[in-house]
């Protein structure tokens, strides 16, 4: 058996109530419980968080930088999705 140093888990930390969890880094751990404890010790030694998510790194699918252009292209030619696209006469309120 090769020495695996354990699988990698990506760590997401919520710093304060009401805001999203943010990627903090990763840890090696044998299972989720250990990943959670390691994440606490590695990423929240100074009260940086109130909640932690750990996710097996191989469970994450990511977009690839090469496809960046074409992948996000559909939204680039639709400026009408932004409120600034519309001209509203001065004097009209609450719009």
């Amino acid at each position: 058996m090769t020495d695996t140093q354990w699988p990698v888990w990506e760590v997401f930390v919520q710093a304060n109530p009401g805001i999203p969890h943010k990627h903090a880094g990763n840890v090696h751990a044998a299972d989720a419980e250990m990943a959670m404890q390691n994440a606490r010790d590695v990423y929240t030694r100074r009260s940086e968080g109130i909640s932690i998510w750990v996710v097996p790194a191989n469970a994450i699918s990511a977009s690839s930088p090469e496809d960046q252009g074409s992948f996000f292209e559909p939204s680039n030619d639709k400026p009408y999705r932004h409120p600034t696209f519309y001209k509203i006469p001065e004097g009209v309120k609450y719009l």
Partner: peptide, 29 residues
């Protein structure tokens, strides 16, 4: 104790960051 624990943490961040370049920790060690 807290300082030495920090150093362990720093080692872990840096091994993690190095692994993103396509080498694993077993090989680094």
């Amino acid at each position: 104790l807290a300082k030495v624990q920090d150093e362990a943490g720093h080692g872990l961040y840096l091994y993690s960051a190095t692994e993103t370049l396509g080498i694993d920790r077993t090989e680094l060690l």
